[in-house]
Design a protein around this nucleic acid. Sequence first.
DNA 1: GGTTTAATAT
DNA 2: TATATTAAAC
Length: 249
Amino acid sequence: MDQALWPSGLRVLVIDNNSSYLSVMEELLIKCSYKVTTYKNVREAMSFIYGNQQTVDLIICDVFFPTEDSLLILQEVTSKFGIPTVIMSSNGDTATVMKYITNGASDFLIKPLRIEELKNIWQHVFRKQIGAEHRKCNNAEHVDQLPYRTMGITEATATLDSEIRENNGTVTDIRDLRKSRLSWTMQLHRQFIAAVNSLGSDKAVPNKILEIMKVKHLTREQVASHLQASPEKFESKIAQRWRSFIIEP
DNA sequence: GGTTTAATAT
DNA sequence: TATATTAAAC
Protein backbone atom coordinates (compact mmCIF):
# COMPACT_ATOMS: atom_id res chain seq x y z
CA MET A 1 0.00 0.00 0.00
CA ASP A 2 1.00 3.55 -0.62
CA GLN A 3 1.84 5.22 2.63
CA ALA A 4 1.60 8.69 1.08
CA LEU A 5 -2.09 8.29 0.41
CA TRP A 6 -2.90 7.98 4.08
CA PRO A 7 -3.71 11.15 5.95
CA SER A 8 -0.85 10.76 8.40
CA GLY A 9 -1.18 12.83 11.51
CA LEU A 10 -4.94 12.34 11.80
CA ARG A 11 -5.71 13.08 15.45
CA VAL A 12 -7.58 10.18 16.95
CA LEU A 13 -9.00 10.05 20.47
CA VAL A 14 -9.59 6.57 21.85
CA ILE A 15 -11.81 5.82 24.84
CA ASP A 16 -11.91 2.39 26.45
CA ASN A 17 -12.17 1.41 30.09
CA ASN A 18 -9.91 -1.54 29.45
CA SER A 19 -6.44 -0.06 29.75
CA SER A 20 -4.66 -3.02 28.19
CA TYR A 21 -6.87 -2.84 25.13
CA LEU A 22 -6.34 0.90 25.13
CA SER A 23 -2.63 0.39 24.67
CA VAL A 24 -3.27 -2.19 21.97
CA MET A 25 -5.35 0.39 20.15
CA GLU A 26 -2.70 3.05 20.62
CA GLU A 27 -0.07 0.79 19.14
CA LEU A 28 -2.22 -0.08 16.14
CA LEU A 29 -3.14 3.54 15.46
CA ILE A 30 0.45 4.72 15.72
CA LYS A 31 1.32 2.09 13.11
CA CYS A 32 -1.23 3.85 10.91
CA SER A 33 0.77 7.03 11.53
CA TYR A 34 -2.07 8.70 13.38
CA LYS A 35 -1.66 10.93 16.41
CA VAL A 36 -3.26 9.17 19.33
CA THR A 37 -4.75 10.35 22.60
CA THR A 38 -6.23 7.81 24.99
CA TYR A 39 -8.70 8.05 27.82
CA LYS A 40 -10.19 5.46 30.13
CA ASN A 41 -13.55 7.18 30.60
CA VAL A 42 -15.85 9.40 28.63
CA ARG A 43 -16.03 12.20 31.15
CA GLU A 44 -12.29 12.94 31.10
CA ALA A 45 -12.14 12.55 27.36
CA MET A 46 -14.95 15.05 26.92
CA SER A 47 -13.31 17.61 29.14
CA PHE A 48 -10.17 17.17 27.06
CA ILE A 49 -12.15 17.91 23.92
CA TYR A 50 -13.75 20.96 25.50
CA GLY A 51 -10.35 22.20 26.65
CA ASN A 52 -8.60 21.48 23.35
CA GLN A 53 -11.08 22.39 20.69
CA GLN A 54 -10.28 21.46 17.10
CA THR A 55 -7.46 19.15 18.14
CA VAL A 56 -9.42 15.93 17.61
CA ASP A 57 -10.44 14.67 14.17
CA LEU A 58 -11.99 11.36 15.10
CA ILE A 59 -13.17 9.55 18.22
CA ILE A 60 -13.10 5.81 18.69
CA CYS A 61 -15.12 4.77 21.71
CA ASP A 62 -15.96 1.49 23.32
CA VAL A 63 -19.58 0.83 24.29
CA PHE A 64 -19.71 1.24 28.03
CA PHE A 65 -22.58 -1.05 28.78
CA PRO A 66 -24.57 -0.70 30.96
CA THR A 67 -23.88 3.01 31.43
CA GLU A 68 -24.90 3.86 27.91
CA ASP A 69 -25.41 7.52 28.74
CA SER A 70 -21.74 7.89 27.93
CA LEU A 71 -22.78 7.51 24.33
CA LEU A 72 -25.14 10.42 24.75
CA ILE A 73 -22.41 12.62 26.17
CA LEU A 74 -20.38 11.66 23.15
CA GLN A 75 -23.28 12.52 20.87
CA GLU A 76 -23.59 15.93 22.36
CA VAL A 77 -19.93 16.71 21.94
CA THR A 78 -19.61 15.22 18.50
CA SER A 79 -22.64 17.05 17.21
CA LYS A 80 -21.41 20.28 18.75
CA PHE A 81 -17.91 20.00 17.33
CA GLY A 82 -18.72 17.86 14.31
CA ILE A 83 -16.34 15.10 15.25
CA PRO A 84 -17.22 11.70 13.78
CA THR A 85 -17.43 8.86 16.28
CA VAL A 86 -16.64 5.22 15.71
CA ILE A 87 -18.06 2.77 18.21
CA MET A 88 -16.31 -0.50 18.95
CA SER A 89 -17.62 -3.51 20.81
CA SER A 90 -16.98 -7.21 21.16
CA ASN A 91 -20.71 -7.74 20.88
CA GLY A 92 -22.01 -6.96 17.42
CA ASP A 93 -25.64 -8.00 17.33
CA THR A 94 -27.72 -6.21 14.75
CA ALA A 95 -29.99 -4.38 17.19
CA THR A 96 -27.05 -2.84 19.02
CA VAL A 97 -25.28 -1.80 15.85
CA MET A 98 -28.50 -0.34 14.48
CA LYS A 99 -29.05 1.64 17.66
CA TYR A 100 -25.64 3.29 17.58
CA ILE A 101 -25.55 3.93 13.85
CA THR A 102 -28.97 5.54 13.86
CA ASN A 103 -27.91 7.67 16.79
CA GLY A 104 -25.11 9.22 14.82
CA ALA A 105 -22.14 6.87 15.09
CA SER A 106 -20.08 6.94 11.91
CA ASP A 107 -19.17 3.28 12.13
CA PHE A 108 -19.45 0.27 14.39
CA LEU A 109 -16.44 -2.03 14.58
CA ILE A 110 -16.22 -5.44 16.22
CA LYS A 111 -13.34 -6.19 18.57
CA PRO A 112 -10.68 -7.19 18.18
CA LEU A 113 -9.93 -4.50 15.64
CA ARG A 114 -7.53 -5.28 12.82
CA ILE A 115 -5.10 -2.71 11.57
CA GLU A 116 -6.69 -2.98 8.12
CA GLU A 117 -9.88 -1.54 9.55
CA LEU A 118 -8.08 1.27 11.32
CA LYS A 119 -6.20 2.26 8.19
CA ASN A 120 -9.50 3.27 6.63
CA ILE A 121 -11.21 5.06 9.46
CA TRP A 122 -10.04 8.48 8.27
CA GLN A 123 -12.73 8.29 5.58
CA HIS A 124 -15.33 9.09 8.23
CA VAL A 125 -13.79 12.49 8.80
CA PHE A 126 -14.22 13.39 5.17
CA ARG A 127 -17.59 11.75 4.84
CA LYS A 128 -18.87 13.83 7.72
CA GLN A 129 -17.58 17.05 6.19
CA ILE A 130 -19.01 16.23 2.79
CA GLY A 131 -22.33 15.31 4.40
CA ALA A 132 -22.44 18.67 6.17
CA GLU A 133 -21.81 20.53 2.94
CA HIS A 134 -24.44 18.49 1.18
CA ARG A 135 -27.01 19.30 3.84
CA LYS A 136 -26.24 22.99 3.59
CA CYS A 137 -26.67 23.03 -0.20
CA ASN A 138 -29.94 21.15 -0.14
CA ASN A 139 -31.36 23.28 2.62
CA ALA A 140 -32.28 19.94 4.17
CA GLU A 141 -33.68 19.77 7.64
CA HIS A 142 -31.15 19.11 10.31
CA VAL A 143 -30.99 15.68 11.89
CA ASP A 144 -31.23 17.36 15.29
CA GLN A 145 -34.77 18.40 14.49
CA LEU A 146 -35.98 14.87 14.01
CA PRO A 147 -37.74 13.18 16.93
CA TYR A 148 -35.06 11.70 19.11
CA ARG A 149 -36.44 8.18 18.82
CA THR A 150 -36.64 8.03 15.04
CA MET A 151 -34.90 5.01 13.68
CA GLY A 152 -33.98 6.33 10.25
CA ILE A 153 -32.66 9.72 9.24
CA THR A 154 -34.57 9.48 5.95
CA GLU A 155 -37.91 9.65 7.72
CA ALA A 156 -39.77 12.85 6.87
CA THR A 157 -40.74 15.15 9.69
CA ALA A 158 -41.99 18.71 9.79
CA THR A 159 -39.42 21.21 10.93
CA LEU A 160 -40.15 23.32 13.98
CA ASP A 161 -39.63 26.79 12.59
CA SER A 162 -40.22 28.60 15.82
CA GLU A 163 -37.61 26.65 17.69
CA ILE A 164 -35.31 29.56 18.32
CA ARG A 165 -31.73 28.46 18.04
CA GLU A 166 -28.36 29.96 18.73
CA ASN A 167 -25.45 29.62 16.36
CA ASN A 168 -24.19 26.45 17.96
CA GLY A 169 -27.53 24.71 17.45
CA THR A 170 -28.64 24.79 21.05
CA VAL A 171 -32.41 24.93 21.54
CA THR A 172 -33.32 27.93 23.67
CA ASP A 173 -37.07 28.03 23.13
CA ILE A 174 -39.67 25.38 22.37
CA ARG A 175 -42.66 27.62 21.72
CA ASP A 176 -44.54 26.46 18.64
CA LEU A 177 -48.14 27.58 18.37
CA ARG A 178 -48.85 25.20 15.51
CA LYS A 179 -48.23 22.17 17.65
CA SER A 180 -50.50 21.15 20.49
CA ARG A 181 -47.79 19.23 22.20
CA LEU A 182 -44.05 19.30 22.51
CA SER A 183 -41.89 17.11 20.33
CA TRP A 184 -38.63 16.00 21.87
CA THR A 185 -36.14 16.42 19.08
CA MET A 186 -32.68 14.89 18.95
CA GLN A 187 -31.08 18.17 19.97
CA LEU A 188 -33.54 18.91 22.74
CA HIS A 189 -33.08 15.38 24.02
CA ARG A 190 -29.30 15.79 23.97
CA GLN A 191 -29.57 18.90 26.07
CA PHE A 192 -31.82 17.01 28.42
CA ILE A 193 -29.31 14.16 28.67
CA ALA A 194 -26.43 16.57 29.15
CA ALA A 195 -28.31 18.12 32.06
CA VAL A 196 -29.09 14.73 33.57
CA ASN A 197 -25.46 13.76 33.31
CA SER A 198 -24.08 16.97 34.74
CA LEU A 199 -26.20 16.27 37.79
CA GLY A 200 -25.83 12.70 39.03
CA SER A 201 -28.35 10.03 38.14
CA ASP A 202 -29.45 10.36 41.77
CA LYS A 203 -29.70 14.18 41.78
CA ALA A 204 -31.35 14.44 38.37
CA VAL A 205 -34.84 15.71 39.19
CA PRO A 206 -37.14 17.70 36.90
CA ASN A 207 -36.59 21.10 38.50
CA LYS A 208 -32.81 20.93 38.39
CA ILE A 209 -32.81 19.52 34.88
CA LEU A 210 -35.06 22.33 33.74
CA GLU A 211 -32.80 24.88 35.39
CA ILE A 212 -29.71 23.59 33.62
CA MET A 213 -31.36 23.20 30.22
CA LYS A 214 -32.31 26.89 30.06
CA VAL A 215 -35.02 26.40 27.45
CA LYS A 216 -37.74 28.98 27.39
CA HIS A 217 -41.35 27.80 27.69
CA LEU A 218 -40.27 24.32 28.64
CA THR A 219 -42.17 23.33 31.78
CA ARG A 220 -41.18 21.26 34.76
CA GLU A 221 -44.04 18.92 33.97
CA GLN A 222 -42.76 18.33 30.47
CA VAL A 223 -39.30 17.56 31.77
CA ALA A 224 -40.82 15.27 34.39
CA SER A 225 -42.82 13.46 31.78
CA HIS A 226 -39.79 13.04 29.57
CA LEU A 227 -37.73 11.85 32.48
CA GLN A 228 -40.20 9.06 33.07
CA ALA A 229 -40.17 8.00 29.45
CA SER A 230 -36.41 8.38 29.12
CA PRO A 231 -34.82 5.02 28.33
CA GLU A 232 -31.52 6.37 29.62
CA LYS A 233 -33.01 7.01 33.00
CA PHE A 234 -34.64 3.61 32.95
CA GLU A 235 -31.44 1.85 32.00
CA SER A 236 -29.35 3.69 34.54
CA LYS A 237 -31.85 2.68 37.18
CA ILE A 238 -31.44 -0.90 36.12
CA ALA A 239 -27.68 -0.47 36.24
CA GLN A 240 -28.01 1.02 39.71
CA ARG A 241 -30.06 -1.90 40.92
CA TRP A 242 -27.56 -4.22 39.33
CA ARG A 243 -24.72 -2.62 41.23
CA SER A 244 -26.52 -2.57 44.55
CA PHE A 245 -27.55 -6.15 43.97
CA ILE A 246 -23.98 -7.20 43.38
CA ILE A 247 -22.49 -5.15 46.20
CA GLU A 248 -25.11 -5.90 48.83
CA PRO A 249 -27.08 -9.04 47.98
C1' DG B 1 -46.91 23.77 49.98
C1' DG B 2 -43.86 22.89 46.50
C1' DT B 3 -41.65 18.93 44.16
C1' DT B 4 -41.23 14.24 42.64
C1' DT B 5 -42.95 10.11 40.96
C1' DA B 6 -46.32 6.44 39.90
C1' DA B 7 -50.28 5.78 37.50
C1' DT B 8 -53.30 6.81 34.18
C1' DA B 9 -55.25 9.35 30.26
C1' DT B 10 -55.08 11.14 25.61
C1' DT C 1 -45.99 5.13 21.36
C1' DA C 2 -45.01 9.64 23.05
C1' DT C 3 -46.48 13.25 25.71
C1' DA C 4 -49.82 15.23 29.10
C1' DT C 5 -52.37 15.07 33.25
C1' DT C 6 -53.67 13.44 37.70
C1' DA C 7 -52.90 12.37 42.21
C1' DA C 8 -50.41 10.09 45.71
C1' DA C 9 -46.11 10.36 48.15
C1' DC C 10 -42.27 12.78 49.79
